[in-house]
Nucleic acid binder design. Structure first.
Lengths: 372, 372
DNA sequence: TTGTACGCGTTATCAT
DNA sequence: ATGATAACGCGTACAA
């Protein structure tokens, strides 16, 4: 009952009339301890408010019960949900979660990932869509603990993610299926997120859908944003100022799509009457803005990654060194519709082919419909 | 260069031709080590890629370099930003951050806060607006480490927050200043967040502003939400279905305000022409929805709380056991305007006094203007 | 300024 | 099923 001296394993051993070894075994639920003995030990431990020192336990066992999650941002929707998913799974199994925020390129990164800060401190690592360069990856590997990633490939690591090519294809096909032909794409900058496949993959999906529909990919309608609302506003404004604005915009993230929506509002362009807008993610913002999008369950990706890591740590399952692909799904809302009847303000210097037919091809329609 | 055996302090001592004690002193930057010796030791340590085992160091020193942040949610805007602010400050000082998500009332809470899981594991605790009941608080105190809170009072702990009464007053005064008299308030449920002052304080501010303006607080216009968009939608719909709907709605959070906005859209009520809506927070959603709100810097609150904790841990400053109040600021956007000209559909069973004059009193106008 | 030696509080190995 | 004891790897009085 005294608060002064936290009791140690010896105190419990004495109180229960057994050795420290038995206390340790009994309290950790190991076998080869008689029920009566265990009961006595547990009683004594409870009485003395004994809690094993995790530091001492780690020193001997080499296990810390801590998993590091490496992320570039904490506040963005995508990362907050990844962390949340991982956290819930990890805490169920008694693991604790250490947040490593490496931020957006810069001096902090080196410090955050410094070998010293993580060495011997964590049992495993979750890399959540963080764009690490080779030296940084090497640092993580030098820690010699299991690593599972979400959204990027790391040699020798399990990976969880969605099929980004397909997600973008689904989105684009939805717009094509509605009859749009002048569709702008606001992607992630592949020159920025060098080692993350997302930006590249989603653009690939966009091109695939266009190709299948027989629509030329006009370079002027492809632009980059920084995945944020603010970035979407900038790109959206530029697109709407064009002499031959698109009838639809697909953004690689909901946040950028919302930015485009804001730009349209400022420009007085009605959505979806004059402009269709859609994103990818199904962010909370997408719902409140009635944004059509392609849903991915980010929380589940985080949880799945954690699950893989735990299986590895428990020895239940060896690393498979391959990607676990989670599903995506088209979510239709009010921000997309068929393009306006052919307006007179068209036929700029744009595509050579331009629009050919209003009705979507059967293939496109089927594809656009399949996700739901 | 070998990856097989991580080198220990003895290896370094041998390589540098000194004792382990000197290695320890040299590497941690303590004095009483000659520059030459230190250089030799550092060289040897670098060469051998030596990193002191944090577990062993903790066992001896009693310090872990880890701070626990206790939160009820990870993904909500408010909490993600608090964590972000705290994290950036803590990592600057070499502390690491352990996330403790206690969730929303239920079995998980007990487990997450269990003495065992935290005992001897962290040097300090940040309680970020988590609604802990007395037993839970006792558990935290039993860990015998410094605690700093954001948004709630804990006996003997420093606290960081905003003046919630004032924030709500500013918001309400803005609406009153615009000429609104039938103003609904969507608050947080004080019966739910029992130990968090926010819900109570903000409602107090609302009442204060109404009283100052000489407007009766009609009970029917006061309702509760769960701080989420979804909750705001429900409340908003009910408010708009009333025979005598309000001309303005103030929600205690931007997320609920956005919900009201969604409800208005569904009901075909134009904002701000027919209904003014405002929130409190300055959430990212507020900007994209052009929502008028009262801004609080949540990131800064997290950072400030971390700073206080660090001062305490470094012995720079003793705990002051008082609240550090951060400023708030009115942000005018397009969701608020003067109420529509007296419509014929009014004069229900409502207030006895009802509207008295269109022009706001000088006091109200002054107050509404002062925040910016 | 530097080295020696003990202890931090467990867990794991062995013997019983 | 249980007990004795040696690590685990470092920090730090204290001695030199």
């Amino acid at each position: 009952m005294r608060l002064t001296a936290p009791s140690g394993i010896q105190d419990v051993a004495r109180a229960a009339g057994v050795s420290t070894a038995t206390v340790s075994r009994a309290l950790r639920g190991l076998d080869r301890v008689s029920p009566q003995t265990r009961a006595r030990v547990v009683a004594a431990a409870t009485e003395l408010r004994y809690v094993a020192s995790p530091t001492a336990a780690s020193l001997k066992s080499g296990k810390t019960g801590v998993i590091a999650v490496v992320v570039p941002y904490l506040t963005r929707w995508f990362f907050a949900h990844l962390i949340d998913g991982a956290q819930s799974r990890l805490s169920c199994q008694g693991y604790r979660l250490l947040v490593v925020n490496i931020g957006d390129r810069g001096a902090h990164r080196a410090r955050a990932l410094d070998h010293n800060l993580l060495a011997k401190r964590v049992d495993g690592i979750l890399v959540l869509s963080a764009d690490l360069d080779p030296p940084e990856v090497a640092q993580l590997h030098s820690l010699a603990v299991p690593i599972v990633t979400v959204g990027l490939d790391l040699p020798g690591c399990d990976r969880v993610g969605i099929d980004d090519v397909d997600a973008a294809d689904i989105a684009m096909s939805h717009l094509l299926g509605l009859g749009h032909r002048r569709i702008a794409y606001v992607g992630g900058d592949p020159a920025h997120d060098v080692h993350i496949a997302t930006a590249v993959q989603r653009r690939k999906g966009v091109r695939r859908a266009l190709r299948r529909a027989g629509v030329d990919a006009e370079p002027g309608l492809f632009s980059y944003g920084d995945w944020t609302v603010r970035g979407g506003i900038d790109v959206g404004r530029r697109l709407l100022e064009r002499p031959d604005p698109p009838t639809a915009v697909l953004a690689a993230s909901d946040e950028m799509a919302i930015g485009v929506l804001c730009a349209a509002r400022v420009a007085g362009v009605r959505v979806p009457d004059e402009l269709s807008v859609m994103g990818i993610d199904d962010h909370e913002l997408a719902f409140t803005h009635e944004l059509t999008t392609v849903r991915q369950s980010v929380t589940e990706q985080g949880a799945t990654a954690a699950e893989l890591l735990l299986q590895w740590l428990n020895g239940t399952q060896a690393p498979q060194r391959q990607t676990l692909v989670l599903p995506t799904e088209l979510v239709r809302r009010a921000s997309t519709a068929s393009p306006p009847a052919r307006s007179p303000s068209r036929q700029g210097k744009g595509t050579a082919r331009s629009t050919r037919s209003r009705a979507p091809s059967p293939e496109i329609a089927r594809r656009a419909a399949r996700a739901r």
